[in-house]
Simulated scan of single mutants.
Amino acid sequence: MMSAIKLAIVGVGKIVHDQHLPAIAANPDFQLVASASRHNIVDGLPGFKSIEEMLAAVPGIDAVSLCMPPQYRYQAARVALAAGKHVFLEKPPGATLSEVADLEALAAAKSLTLFTSWHSRYAPAVQPAKAHLAAHAPTAMQVIWKEDVRQWHPNQEWIWQAGGLGVFDPGINALSIVTEILPSLIFLNRATLEFPDNRDAPIAAELHFQDGGGMPVHAVFDWRQTGKQSWDIVVQTSDGELKLGDGGARLWVHGVEQPLTKEAEYPSLYRRFAGLVREGRSDVDVAPLRHVADAFMLGQRKVVDAFHD
């Protein structure tokens, strides 16, 4: 049997406690050996304030999962790769496309694994939907991704800062599913981004895409939703309607809900990362981030009421 990959986590926040730690604990391919975070620790493990301090103090680390806000991820990834460590990037993989391209080149030069993780692509409805759309050509798509920022990102100031993505932090999950299930590439035609007048990142966005054949994709992202949250993708096809609900956890074809496997997004991510490390390969896909960058480039800016937590 191969020895476990010695893994460290950098950036210990809510997503780490909710998703990463349980997934790692359940995967025998990994042994979690340390963490680095400015404010938090992982119980039972050596904890450090920076990745530099951690790598200097803990010998034998093979890989790191970088889970800090995207504005700070590039420098930590450079440090890890320079030290010979494989790197798992939480979504989004960076604050800019150029950062990720530089990391990809460095990982390749050092024969290390770089993994841009998109957890929503591992939702149980995604691969069945992809197979259905490969057999039945889509003719239109509607994406509705609306949630309450106060529920999901309470008091997280970084997300409202430049580079924090704002409503695109959840919206990029929708785009990761869209770019996985569609059989053709799409590109942005026009967009409107709504910025609170006291924030540097948008609270809502409306995006209009099409593919080379003119098939339309309309997406609406909003962080002001209260009550029931909406994470839906509805596709019209040559064979009727297909719908993904609850962020890809449920699937309907012709209005009939389909049986699916149990949700296991983060366990699937770590299985994928372990396989890449064992095989000496990288998986770097920036398509969802490219669409977000296009929205900031092409989108009309609209100022709306100030937002306060």
Rank of each mutant, 00 (worst) to 15 (best):
P69C: 09
F168C: 09
D305W: 03
Q151I: 15
Q142L: 15
L21S: 09
S35I: 10
E263P: 06
N40W: 07
D211Q: 05
V286C: 03
A295P: 10
G248I: 03
S117R: 00
V277H: 02
A63K: 04
R272V: 08
V33D: 13
A204Q: 02
Q258L: 11
H218Y: 04
H132M: 11
M141Y: 09
R281D: 15
R121V: 15
R199N: 00
F187C: 06
I144K: 13
K49V: 15
V303N: 15
L175R: 02
G248N: 00
G163A: 11
P92G: 03
D232K: 00
S120T: 14
W118E: 05
K302I: 06
V292W: 10
W223G: 09
S98W: 14
K91V: 15
K243W: 13
F296W: 04
D309S: 12
W145G: 05
R150H: 11
F209W: 09
D18H: 14
W145K: 12
E157Y: 12
I203A: 05
K228E: 10
H119S: 06
A306T: 00
K243A: 12
F48Q: 02
V143K: 01
R272Q: 09
M215F: 01
F88T: 13
Q156W: 08
V253A: 04
D285C: 04
S117N: 10
L21Q: 12
A306N: 01
S35F: 04
A306S: 07
G280W: 03
S184T: 09
L269D: 13
L97R: 09
K6M: 14
E265D: 06
G47W: 05
N155H: 04
F195S: 02
R290L: 09
L207C: 13
F168D: 08
I186H: 01
A131E: 14
L251F: 08
D148R: 02
R121W: 01
A56D: 14
A125T: 15
G47P: 06
T226F: 03
M1T: 07
P288Q: 00
L103F: 06
S117T: 14
A109K: 07
V220N: 03
I61D: 03
A191S: 03
L165D: 09
A25H: 02
T96G: 10
A25W: 05
D62E: 05
A105Y: 04
D309H: 12
V167L: 06
V16M: 15
E52A: 07
P154H: 06
A125L: 11
A174I: 07
A135M: 07
H153W: 05
V217R: 01
P196Q: 04
V220K: 02
M215P: 03
K228A: 11
A4T: 10
H86D: 05
V149I: 15
A36L: 06
R301T: 12
T139W: 11
A205N: 01
F30G: 02
H254Y: 13
G163P: 01
A125S: 00
